[in-house]
């Protein structure tokens, strides 16, 4: 059932200068799957996630969203007009949540959320605002709609960032260490939102250091080591019974 696949990553390789960060990685997420990428810093997990929506351009390999293959092959930062257009359209189907939130600082919470729907999806302001308010309700932060991001705590900013990504109705959500920049007491409020999305059956790829979260919500956990998949499998099995020494070591370190 090919059209059951929401996202496929095929043999992605990426070098930064002489350093080979990704040495050929493949993933496949069916609709409703939650794949957690774990591993030490430097293992390539964030780079892999950024390759999925081409914030980093892979040196080789394919990204397939639904049944559409990203065509872009930029040469020294430049790509053809048609390829750029295709990439823009594919990116609208992938929601990205960053470690540092990256809310637009010159816009209020509400403006951040309606920006994409208004200018990219063609919604009227009223439609976009109505949807934004539902999303703010969902992430539990409606009273902050007219605040600027700089007035919000990290946890609140990250919840707004999740709402902003959801406003585009993405088919797949990408999370890049969504709680790593948060003070410990603010982690839970963001984790609750992410768990809620998983429970709704959202397709998600998640880079995380939160082992409990990975264990609770993932359909598959992928352990990366030095740019390769060292071990992958069902979360409970992998975490209670790791096969490789490296995963065993890693789990001991983060436990």
């Amino acid at each position: 059932m090919a059209n059951d696949i929401a996202l496929a990553v095929r043999d992605i390789r990426k070098k930064f200068g002489p350093l080979e960060v990704l040495k050929g990685i493949s993933l496949e997420a069916r609709r409703g799957d939650v794949i957690s990428l774990i591993g030490q810093s430097g293992s390539g997990k964030s780079t892999l996630l950024r390759c999925i929506n081409y914030l980093e351009t892979p040196d080789s390999g394919e990204i397939i969203v639904g049944d559409e293959v990203i065509r872009a092959r930029p040469v020294r930062g430049r790509m053809s007009r048609a390829d750029r257009r295709q990439l823009e359209l594919v990116r609208r189907r992938l929601g990205m949540v960053f470690q540092n939130f990256n809310l637009w600082a010159h816009m209020t919470v509400l403006e951040n959320i309606i920006e994409g729907p208004r200018h990219l999806l063609g919604l009227t302001r009223d439609q976009a605002v109505a949807e934004a308010e539902q999303l703010l309700e969902k992430v539990g932060i409606r009273e902050k709609r007219d605040s600027y991001p700089s007035r919000l705590s990290g946890g609140q900013q990250q919840r707004v960032a999740i709402a902003r990504a959801l406003a585009m109705n993405p088919e797949v959500m990408l999370f890049d260490e969504p709680t790593s920049a948060l003070d410990p007491e603010l982690v839970q409020e963001v984790l609750q939102v992410i768990k809620g999305l998983a429970a709704e059956g959202r397709t998600m790829i998640l880079v995380t250091h939160e082992m409990a979260l990975a264990r609770d919500i993932s359909s598959e956990v992928v352990f990366l080591h030095q740019g390769l998949v060292e071990e992958r499998g069902a979360p409970a099995e992998m975490m209670s019974n790791p096969k490789s020494d490296r995963l065993r070591q890693f789990l001991r370190m983060v436990a």
Binding site: R84, R85, L94, G95, L120
Partner: peptide, 14 residues
């Protein structure tokens, strides 16, 4: 900051 433009690229803004 780069993150500001990346957030816009990520939603497919031309």
């Amino acid at each position: 900051p780069k993150g500001q433009t990346e957030a816009a690229e990520a939603i497919g803004m031309p």
